[in-house]
């Protein structure tokens, strides 16, 4: 199973699309690793520097409809090659969410209220998130501030994360 704990990167905008996550001009790359430098290269987000702000981060917390647009699995791969295996948002585009779990990564939905609170409490500070997969909870820590948040994912998505993705799961069953 992949690592789902690490430092948080807050992206304060809704509808961040797949062209912003990884522009189409890089879709001619035939290895996942070669996508690494281009993550969020063209993102429309004031003050964001993709060279600096991604470094050392392991988890993204963002607003609704993350990953809308294209079906490209290059989007999760560009995240994965940068050490990001978990995105937390109020909602996701269908194909992006599917692609994440199909790769054994996680796209976890939390309510608008919780996401807004996490933004207001943690987004301006260095925040570490520990994921307790079996207990379905995240523990967010920043200095003295600590908060535990429960999450829910479907039994199927949980099985994909445990199996390391959809291909192994499907090939052994169908």
């Amino acid at each position: 199973m992949k690592n789902f704990s690490g430092k948080a990167l807050f992206l304060d905008r809704s509808d961040i699309n797949t062209d912003e996550i990884i522009p189409a001009k890089h879709l001619s790359e035939n290895t996942r690793q070669s996508l690494k430098p281009y993550l969020f290269e063209d993102i429309n987000l004031e003050g964001f520097d993709n060279k600096k702000d991604i470094q050392g981060k392991g988890i993204i917390i963002t607003r609704e409809n993350f990953g809308c647009g294209s079906s490209r699995e290059h989007a999760p791969w560009a995240l994965e090659t940068n050490g990001i295996n978990l995105v937390i948002a109020p909602s996701f585009a269908r194909i992006f969410k599917r692609n994440m779990f199909n790769c054994g990564m996680m796209a976890v939905e939390l309510s608008h209220e919780i996401i807004s609170r996490l933004f207001s409490v943690f987004s301006k500070r260095d925040t570490e998130i520990e994921t307790l997969f079996d207990k379905s909870s995240f523990i967010l820590k920043s200095g003295d501030v600590k908060e535990s948040v429960k999450f829910e994912i479907s039994k199927f998505d949980r099985a994909l994360v445990s199996a390391g993705g959809w291909l192994e799961y499907a090939d052994s069953r169908y």
């Binding site: 999760p76 599917r98 499907a170």
Partner: peptide, 19 residues
């Protein structure tokens, strides 16, 4: 529309998981 892993499973097994 699906991503690459769904496509792989489609090519290999002729199935897809959908809601």
């Amino acid at each position: 529309g699906v991503g690459t892993t769904d496509l792989e499973v489609g090519i290999l097994k002729g199935v897809c998981a959908l809601r």
